[in-house]
Amino acid sequence: MLTVTDLSIRFERYDRGLTRTVLTPVHHLDLDIGPGEIVAVIGASGSGKSLLAHAVLGILPDNCRVDGEIRFKGDPLTPARQKALRGREMVLVPQSVGFLNPLKNVGAQVRRAAILGGAAGRDAPGITDAAFARYGLAPAVQALFPFQVSGGMARRVLTATATVGRADLIVADEPTTGLDQEAAQQSMAFLRSLADEGRSVMVISHDLSAVVPVADRVAVFLSGTTVEGAPAGSFNGQPEALRHPYSRDMWRALPGHGFDPGPDRAAGPTWSEGEADGCPYVRRCARADAACADTFPPKRHFGRDFVRCRHA
């Protein structure tokens, strides 16, 4: 359904005066999502995961340059095609109600999404009612404005907005943040039901324990690149089921597992600092050697799984 190959995103930014800096928040990124699958992109907050979603939908700011290839249903996603498909065949479930129009009630916004998604104008109210019922929202909620809905309700409204259409690709940005455990599980269950209808879902999250039980596959995101692609089940067993040292350290750090902050090697940055540098995990990795610091680790495949580590 969606295949991302060797994606990089660069943008230039001003420092003091007229000096410009080129940042590469995303590079060497590979991802592949099949129909009916939930793929979770897991990584530290602020590490550029949202940029990946924005690149797929073509909503990056103007000063960005995107390289690499994104294919949707087999054909490359050009800016024109992104514009045509956005909101119709691929939709974003944003992080918060801050993304909704504050001046329109939520019912009107879901109806508009339905029409954008291809429904006829007169069918839209019916589809909207059905979507509200499906996510356990009372019909009266349709008349509320975004600032009036609570966190859990907002999550359902956002999901409804993104799913009234016939979109085949759903991108959910941090669908569990700010929700308590029950609401978070419900939010993930909504996405599961959408995947079970044959749609593809990309979930972007830093919250391993909330996302992994529902996802099919996990892509581990570190410093702008995917260092490992593995079945979600690998996170349920022993850390040895995972291939990349970062994935294993992350697994061991979960409160429900070891709560182990890992070897305190330099407590180094989670962001590496130069294009030509080696492995992004080199400063924190217990197995790093000189070669890891010099060359970017090649991608090694194991069936559908892959890892970017010289030692795995």
Partner: peptide, 9 residues
């Protein structure tokens, strides 16, 4: 808002 490793540390 933090990933598991940063949280534990």
């Amino acid at each position: 808002m933090l990933d598991a490793l940063t949280q534990a540390r």
